[in-house]
Write a protein that binds this DNA or RNA. Structure first.
Length: 593
RNA sequence: GCAUCCAUAGCUCAGCUGGAUAGAGCAACGGUUUUCUAAACCGUAGGUCAUAGGUUCGAAUCCUAUUGGGUGUACCA
């Protein structure tokens, strides 16, 4: 039983003895004592005055007397308004530190047997990645790692959007204007090459539209009648019919893209347990539609199209199958959801997809629930906000995007320049330097994207490059490296407990309390699917260490062995938390920098 | 129109299931290095938590309305 549970139980007993009332445990509200007051743990007594029938001050004082008398570790109390601040004996914190935080498995949460699937990334094969996609990848990866850290068994999957009219557009443009250009001949990364032709298509298509408008067609007519779009549509039909030439072109170009993806995923440090390809799943879902018709969840209109009426749920009528019997987006997703469940039988399934699809997923989950799928309640759309530029939204076709590869290169270059300016790594080998610049650059980028709550839109200003100071990845990396250096210089011995009778400073007690929260912070962040919440905690830990480090005299010269060992222990635990916490965010921390 | 999300310091963001005087970073200003890494630390300044009501002993947090912004509302994906 930890001290908090002790206090809650004792408070319930106190109310029983003092006021002859049964106080529900949930009414005992504990919080950290604010720094300006004495004590470490505070009871908010307002909820208790209903039971004591006395003023908050009197109640707090009576409870304080009782707790000091009944809990050995409570040494003193003070009352400020309705707040009862409790001082806990230093030896309690040292004991806690020795017995829990110093253990090698501290921060490891036991497996809970839950299986969770996380789908993320889900790229198109016709355009290169921009910053918005980077957010998706980092978020998906780190949420997966977070859930793992919280004890779940996690499958990361990637549903590749490798077919459809948009892919045909790139293929067609390449066929017409590509002159057999390849990644090798052009020196372009595969996805960039394919993306280039997607842009060319759009440009030529727009020209045709303009020309048709001059001939007197309306915008809508021109869009439908332009020869290029008709050709692309014909190509899609040929693809669906299995036309050999089209398929082979499709394979060739997709393979270029996949080669590019591999490099990128490696650069980003993300991975997957399984890839699904839409070219294999796009026909799925028709069985589900049949099932829905049988169950009377769907209905058929006279033209043969199949619908669901969600007006009772505050939504609209939604088409689930076209009149010609072909699938729409949601048909596919119904089928894919079923397939994923059949594959993994997971308890929860997370879709990491931008917030422009909030409505789609609401409908999807509702339909699956209405179809009586027991697993539908485990579906969750992890919706995240757009990454905006100061000029507004990023649009791939208008070239107002921050290209992922460019940005990564830029971050690494900035890291190099900043590191060299500090002049601390001159004696590093070239390999170590390169690896360091990469870690720092990526650390800055990843932390920048992950520290913001997923739901919120994120503003990226290319003119003000991402910071390396303050609440940033490099700050945390630096703190870690600094601790590592300290530990080795001071000759730290791992896992050696110290006598609980040593004296601690206020900062040291605060630090133990903060460090002890690590497991519960993981759980909290995992429940909220929020790497941002963990990032915030890690930052607090790093900041706390720097404050501590600054306050204490140099440890290498410390003569009190117990004190020295304990301070090194504190540093060591801090470094471990920074490292494993950052790992959950997908960020590496260097041993020295 | 309807649905949905967002609004906190000049800028970028925290603020846990409602709890004390709303916190960080950046930018600005001042200070700290004969001592373990100054990518650090300490301090000053900066707020009508969009607005108005409501619930509550207590609201940035919950409810309602309003304003401003994003997104969605296709037999596109």
């Amino acid at each position: 039983m930890n001290i908090e549970q002790h206090i809650v139980a004792a408070t319930v007993n106190a109310v029983k003895e003092l006021y002859h009332q049964d106080l529900p445990e949930a009414q005992v509200s504990l919080q950290d004592t604010r720094l300006e007051f004495e004590g470490q743990i505070t009871i908010v007594v307002f909820p208790i005055v209903r039971y004591s029938k006395k003023s908050p001050e009197v109640t707090a004082n009576e409870l304080g007397e009782y707790l000091v008398a009944h809990i050995e570790e409570i040494t003193a109390f003070n009352v400020i308004k309705g707040f009862l601040n409790l001082s806990i004996a230093t030896h309690y914190w040292v004991d806690l530190f020795n017995s829990e935080l110093l253990k090698p498995d501290f921060g490891k949460i036991a497996p809970n047997g839950r299986k969770v699937m996380v789908e993320y990334s889900s790229p198109n094969t016709n355009k290169p990645l921009h910053l918005g996609h980077v957010r998706n990848n980092l978020l998906g990866y780190s949420v997966s790692e977070l859930l793992k850290a919280n004890g779940a068994e996690v499958y990361k999957v990637n549903l590749v959007n490798d077919r459809g009219i948009h892919i045909c557009k790139s293929m067609l443009a390449w066929q017409k204007w590509g002159n057999e250009e390849t990644p090798e001949s052009s020196g372009l990364k595969g996805d960039h090459l394919v993306g280039k032709y997607y842009v060319i298509f759009d440009k030529e298509y727009k020209k045709e539209i303009e020309a048709l408008k001059l001939e007197g067609q309306t915008e809508d007519e021109a869009k439908k009648n332009a020869p290029l779009i008709k050709e692309a549509q014909a190509m899609l039909l040929a693809w669906e019919a299995g036309d050999e030439q089209v398929i082979s072109l499709w394979k060739k170009m997709n393979n270029w893209v996949y080669a590019g993806f591999e490099i990128r995923y490696k650069n980003l440090g993300v991975d997957f347990d399984k890839f699904y390809y839409e070219s294999n799943t796009y026909l799925l879902g028709k069985g589900t539609v049949e099932e829905g018709l049988e169950k009377g969840v769907f209905f058929k209109k006279p033209d043969g199209s199949v619908w669901i009426d969600l007006t009772a749920d505050g939504l609209d009528q939604k088409l689930v199958l076209r009149a010609d019997g072909t699938s729409v987006y949601i048909t596919q997703d119904l089928g894919t959801a079923q397939m994923k469940y059949d594959d993994f039988k997971m308890d929860e399934s997370i879709y990491v997809v931008g917030n422009e699809q909030d409505y789609h997923f609401k409908v999807l989950f509702l339909i699956l629930d209405k179809l009586g799928k027991s697993w539908a309640k485990g579906l969750y759309h992890l919706s995240y906000g757009m990454v905006d530029l100061p000029s507004g939204k990023m649009k791939s076709r208008e070239g107002t995007v921050v290209d992922a590869d460019d940005l990564i290169a830029e971050m690494v270059a900035t890291a190099k320049q900043k590191t060299e300016a500090l002049g601390k790594v001159d004696h590093f080998s070239e390999e170590e330097k390169e690896s360091l610049y990469y870690k720092i650059g990526m650390g800055a980028l990843k932390y920048f994207l992950l520290k913001v709550e997923p739901k919120k839109r994120l503003l990226f200003d290319p003119a003000e490059s991402i910071d390396f100071q303050g609440n940033t990845g490099p700050f945390i990396q630096y703190t870690h490296a600094r601790i590592k250096s300290l530990l080795s210089k001071a000759g730290h011995k791992e896992g050696v407990e110290v006598d609980s009778k040593i004296e601690l400073s206020g900062t040291e007690v605060e630090m133990i309390i903060l460090l002890a929260k690590y497991p519960s912070e993981i759980t909290l962040a995992a429940k909220a699917f929020s790497p941002a919440s963990l990032a915030n905690y890690i930052y607090e830990v790093a900041k706390m260490f720097n404050k501590f480090y600054h306050e204490i005299p140099p440890l290498v010269k410390e003569e009190d062995e117990q004190l020295k060992q304990h301070r090194l222990n504190l540093s060591w635990v801090t470094a471990n938390i920074l490292k494993s916490g950052m790992r959950i965010l997908g960020i590496e921390v260097p041993e020295r920098m």
